[in-house]
Amino acid sequence: MQIHVNGRQMEVVKDSTIGDLLNRVNIQEKLVVVEQNQQIINKAVYNQTTLTDGDVIEIVHFVGGG
């Protein structure tokens, strides 16, 4: 199924979770804020929150450089 991540289309397997998505894009869970269809998702439930077709996901990842 198709979702939108940071404005880009992405193909993901059915029943995958926010946790799976973060793994796939290689991002540490503790360092992100994730929004699913304009709702911020609590870090504690990333692995229980499933994605559905057409979801609009925003992932913002803290970085330390400067």
Partner: peptide, 8 residues
């Protein structure tokens, strides 16, 4: 060329 903004 991606952009994200989340109202926190």
């Amino acid at each position: 060329r991606t952009y994200s903004a989340i109202n926190v």
